[in-house]
Amino acid sequence: MIYNFYLFNRHCKCIYYANWQNDKEDEDNALSSKGNEMKWEEEAKLVYGVVYSLRNLCRKLSTVNGVPEKTDKDKEEDKENEDRGFLSYKTNAYKLHYYETASGLKFVVCTDPRSPNLQDMLHQIYRDIYVEYVVKNPLCMSDNDYINNELFKTKLHEFIKSQSN
């Protein structure tokens, strides 16, 4: 079960958001929990803050756990690997998966807590959907705008649906 999806660009901006929760249920709950409801823009900022902090935290802690003395060559390899430090976190009700590309795009997905590691799935979204339908689209001039590309939307939704089943 996949709850929602966030895509952040390298300027910390949320450029795509999608939600697959049951809308009907939300409407029923909306009245009772209106005080707690947040706009998705606000929520996206919090999500970015969380993954950014956790990424730094994991980076700091992993130097503690690993071998402290490193050669220059190791350091270079580390630079490539370090962005892959933080993979996911889990609470009793959901799991948040994180994937960062070399160009600084950040993919975040919330699922139920029993789901396995989704790094490959997020990489697949980047490779087969984002690159194909956003990067290769000549009409997408700026990388700083919200993605309003219908083809991207439908392909992403199809892909997530196929993964959820």
Binding site: Y3, N4, N19, Q21, M38, E43, L46, V47, V50, L54, L57, C58, L61, S62, N65, G66, N81, R84, G85, F86, L87, S88, Y89, K90, T91, N92, A93, Y94, C110, N117
Partner: peptide, 18 residues
């Protein structure tokens, strides 16, 4: 706060090395 469903706080963080 950002939980899609009512939830507790973080229980486990997975990183590539720990």
């Amino acid at each position: 706060r950002i939980a899609p469903v009512p939830s507790s706080g973080i229980e486990v963080i997975e990183a590539s090395t720990f």
